[in-house]
Simulated scan of single mutants.
Amino acid sequence: MSNRKDEHVALALQQHGSAGRNEFDLVRFVHHALPDSDSDRSDLRTDVAGATWNWPFYLNGMTGGSTRTGEINRQLATAARETGIAIAAGSLSAYLKDASTAESFRVLRTENPHGFVMANVNANADLDGVRRAVDLLEANALQIHLNVAQETVMPEGDRAFGHWAQMLERTVQALDVPVIVKEVGFGLSPQTLQRLHGLGVQWADVSGRGGTDFARIENARRPGTDYDYLIGWGQSAPACLAEASLLPAAQRPHLLASGGVRHPLDVLRALALGARAVGVSGHFLHTLSTQGLDALIAEIHRWQAQLRQLLALVGCTNLADLAHTDLLLGGELREYCELRGVDVAALAQRQRTAAARCHPATVAPIETITP
């Protein structure tokens, strides 16, 4: 297990080096040149899992379970403490199988005693294991990851998934901390979100493709690399968020997003598409690995400053205002959304629609100029 965790980190870092464009690039804001906003008034606070976060992005679950990954977790926890952002553990499966790996995870709390820390287990974890994971980190919330595609390709992976829904429902009912169900990079469809809501899940991270591809990672660990055709499986985070809008808010969990987030504009895009907060893994892990802890802290501070400025750029004072920004979806993302029934034209007219709803008498039709 420890060797596998080290392999995952090495392969994830290799992927980051080859990362390029993804479907976040197919989400554009319509620029309006007279915004009623100021950067110093930008309010980036967001409510997640029973707490108010000062920043709408967080260090998402990455690793743990070996000496090397324990040191990575120590540095990530230090960065979270110094910048005030939330942090999630990588899967604690290694700890649940081997208690000697505890310190490689526990360091997330010891280095960050007052921060918002999320434990992470897979859907097979029983209640005893779940409670052990939460207690080890004194966790504020628990992530339960769904990773069918990864398990399918993983040489030693699980092959039985039919009991997962029952396990999820039992855990949600029994646990005292909020539960966040997340994918690991293949996306959550509206049907899945609706089913999760029916199981009592109140928070879900859509975690779409476009970032670290665990099908690719596990395929690289196979002697014959014979699952290469599953590389790129699933839906992107922007597609998942846009499609989730087809469900009434009362019929789905509150949404988080991750998967392929490379810079503050991607965070803003995900927030404008309906996410409450955005998880970042690959970019921050690469920064830490290549430049060190001080550089990671500086990078997170840079994201925080730029997010304030970007919020003002699109005419918003707080995150709720982002629901009224005009978004243009292009390329394969637009094609996917149209095929799935998302009204992409309505996304492009949200500001005007909101203004008409609040002040119908003051909204004049846009004049069409005839050549």
Rank of each mutant, 00 (worst) to 15 (best):
F186W: 06
V172Q: 07
V184T: 04
V179Q: 03
H197Y: 15
L199R: 10
L188C: 07
A165L: 09
G200L: 11
V181L: 09
Q194M: 15
A160R: 12
L193D: 07
A174F: 14
V172A: 13
F186P: 02
Q194E: 14
G162Q: 09
A165Q: 06
A160K: 06
F186N: 08
V179Y: 02
G157L: 02
L188V: 09
R170Q: 14
M167Q: 14
E183M: 02
F161M: 04
L175F: 05
G187R: 00
M167F: 10
T192Q: 13
L188M: 15
S189H: 06
A165V: 07
L168E: 03
L196M: 09
R170K: 12
R170C: 03
L193M: 09
R195L: 14
W164Q: 10
V179W: 01
G162P: 08
D158K: 03
L199N: 08
H163K: 10
E169T: 11
P190E: 03
W164G: 04
G157F: 05
P190Y: 05
L188R: 05
V177D: 06
F186G: 02
P190K: 03
V181F: 09
T171V: 15
L188Y: 07
H197R: 14
D176L: 11
V179S: 05
D158I: 00
L175T: 13
T171Q: 08
F161T: 03
G157Y: 05
A160P: 00
P190W: 06
V181C: 03
W164T: 14
R195W: 07
D158N: 04
